[in-house]
Amino acid sequence: MFAILLFLVLHWYLSLFAQSFFHHRYAAHRAFTMSKGWEKFFFAYSFVTQGSSYMSPRVYAILHRIHHAYTDTELDPHSPSFDKNWISMMWRTSFTYVQIMKEKMVIEERFLKNVPQKNWLDWWGNTWYSRILWSGVYVWFYVVFAPSAWWYLLIPVHILMGPIHGMVINWFAHKYGRVNFETDNTSKNLFKVDVLMLGEGYHNNHHKFPSRSNFAVKKGEFDPVYPVIALFHKLKIVKINNVVA
């Protein structure tokens, strides 16, 4: 049982870190820069930790920039304002993602500036072969370590880890929580201290200051990813564009 719980927690947080640090703050918002060598490293890190739900950093960046430009409008790729439930919202998000990935959607030039370029991981990680192989790894782990078949119910969580992370923020953080700053959208902060979503729950803060590397703004808030970014900055792995406390 311990092995299963440890695997679930590690998969949740390591894949979420890839999404928050690399896809969101770096690829989409360029809150910091890094060398091409480190970019390749975090491409590989994202592929390994996201596994069956690997997302192209390039496509994610474009998709997320569209979200910020058209939040809560019909052009928003994921908005509770235009979907009856989180399932239909995530289905629409997935459809838009595939359209961008296959270059079947016209993208405004402003959304393409400084996005990570395609590489072989973007191709391989988004094939069904890759997703099925990673799913097989998760199934194998549970067959070996799960104390009973009931634990197999957690396997879909691993397979759909990325979409689950996206659903928590894109659905719930636009419907529930508190507002620190008045904006022209429905973004809210889900938590006072966001450990569960590694700072991504400070969605209202983020919509107010999208280029900040630290999503925590007010006293008592804590963004677990920012200290890592600050450490990487000191180690010269990244260069923060706007250093904030």
Results as ranks from 00 to 15, higher is better:
H233F: 03
P77N: 08
L198Y: 03
F42M: 07
V238L: 04
A173T: 03
A149Y: 14
N205Q: 09
A3T: 13
A3I: 05
S15E: 06
T73A: 10
A28K: 05
E182Q: 14
Q99M: 09
F209C: 02
T33G: 07
F191T: 00
A31N: 00
F2Q: 09
P116S: 04
H203D: 12
V217G: 02
I155C: 06
Y70K: 14
A216F: 04
W86I: 11
L235K: 12
M101L: 15
R178S: 14
K239G: 05
K239N: 14
N185H: 02
L5T: 13
R30C: 06
N241T: 09
I66D: 00
V238Q: 10
V193W: 07
R25P: 03
L8I: 09
W134G: 06
A245E: 15
P224H: 02
V157I: 15
S79I: 07
Y13F: 15
V139Q: 02
Y176C: 11
A146K: 08
I100G: 13
A3K: 12
M167N: 10
K192S: 15
I159W: 00
F222P: 07
Y60T: 00
M34I: 03
K236R: 15
Y152W: 15
D223K: 11
V168P: 04
R25M: 04
F172C: 02
H29N: 09
S79P: 01
K104S: 10
S81N: 03
W140F: 15
P116V: 09
I229N: 02
A230T: 11
L196E: 03
T73P: 00
M197W: 05
